[in-house]
Nucleic acid binder design. Structure first.
Length: 320
DNA sequence: CACCAGGATCCCT
DNA sequence: AGGGATCCTGGTG
């Protein structure tokens, strides 16, 4: 599925990125195909990376019907691309073929920028959620397990994490796809593809960071995947974790039941809602609304109800 | 009654 | 467009 004819824009041990700049015929064919694509979506529903012109090997395998987070990004990309690849015609002066080529060139670059941007954003969000560094090479065994648990949840891969016990990120990165399949014949390829994307994202980020400051990419405020985004508004799950990590102050209203598993109990629902309301400057906040927001996290795989469900008890999908 | 689940809509960024 | 807030209906113990 790769396009080795194109310009090589990045490499990791197992993944490369190519952008075709050579054959306008091919590019048009790809763009036309794109109109028929079913729209996948993030967070880390990465199948959109198989987008025409920007190719990440293995990512197509992540696109399966069971993926709960598959929909959104290509819709955005498709909308912009298709709109922009058809600039308003000028009847008096039909565009020259070179101009068409330039327009296509620009479209392609825009798509590439958007896709790269979205990938980095998704990886960044996941890093923040899992509290792990972006580069898989830097992962400890515990961090590998966190990532596996998350991936397991994301792609509904039962028991995937148990097949990679006591492995650090470096071990994982040196494994081939065959090694992955050997450990899990059913899901090895999906895990491998997902890991591939993370490594690729790191490579992309490095590449753009070291690029000339005049590059269009530099105008995008790249997200530092390890930072906490001081200017970003806090999200509810972050707020809850914040309270939980300060038991000295808040254990009377919210506390861990099982910190290792991420299970917590809201002891004083009204008080937690009040605190959330204060933080967000929403005086009318109450537990009914707060709990509705928590339930939105079920779909996103951030918070869920524990296996043994009980009132006011929730569980972080990825423990702190 | 308090909590839970989830649809619909609005608002803000 | 996406996230969160808000409102709502209906269900459970």
């Amino acid at each position: 599925m790769g396009s080795p004819d194109g310009e090589h824009i990045g490499t990791t041990a197992h993944a490369s990125f190519y952008v075709s700049h050579s054959h306008s015929q091919t590019r048009l064919a790809w763009l036309d195909e794109a109109e028929d694509l079913k729209p996948p979506r993030g967070v880390l529903g990465f199948s959109e990376l198989s987008w025409p012109g920007v190719c990440i090997p293995s990512s197509d395998r992540l696109f399966n019907k069971g993926n709960p987070l598959v929909q959104r990004r290509t819709e955005q990309c498709a909308a912009v691309t298709l709109e922009q690849r058809l600039p308003a015609p000028c009847p008096a002066q039909p565009p020259l073929p070179e101009m068409e080529a330039q327009v296509e060139e620009r479209c392609l670059e825009q798509v590439q920028t958007m896709v790269v941007e979205e990938v980095l954003k998704d990886v960044s969000t996941a890093c923040k959620l899992l509290n792990i560094p972006p580069d898989p090479l830097d992962w400890s065994c515990v961090q590998v397990q966190k990532w596996l648990l998350w991936t397991e949840h994301l792609y509904k891969l039962p028991q995937a994490s148990t097949m990679f016990q006591e492995m650090c990120g470096r071990d994982l990165c040196f494994m081939t796809e065959a090694d992955f399949k050997q450990r899990s014949s059913q899901f090895g390829d999906t895990l491998f593809a997902h890991l591939d994307i993370w490594r690729s994202a790191t490579a992309m980020k490095r590449r753009y960071e070291t690029e000339d400051s005049k590059s269009a990419f530099q105008e995008t405020p790249w997200l530092d995947v390890t930072s906490n985004y001081p200017n970003q508004p806090i999200q509810l799950w972050q707020f809850l974790r914040e309270l939980l990590l300060k038991p000295h102050n808040y254990s009377r209203c919210i506390r861990w039941l099982n910190k290792e598993k991420g299970i917590f109990k809201i002891e004083d629902s009204a008080q937690v809602a009040r605190l959330w309301g204060i933080r967000k400057n929403r005086p009318a906040m109450n537990y009914d609304k707060l709990s509705r927001s928590i339930r939105q996290y079920y779909k996103k795989g951030i918070i869920r109800k524990p296996e043994v469900s009980a009132r006011l008890i929730y569980q972080f999908v990825i423990p702190v």
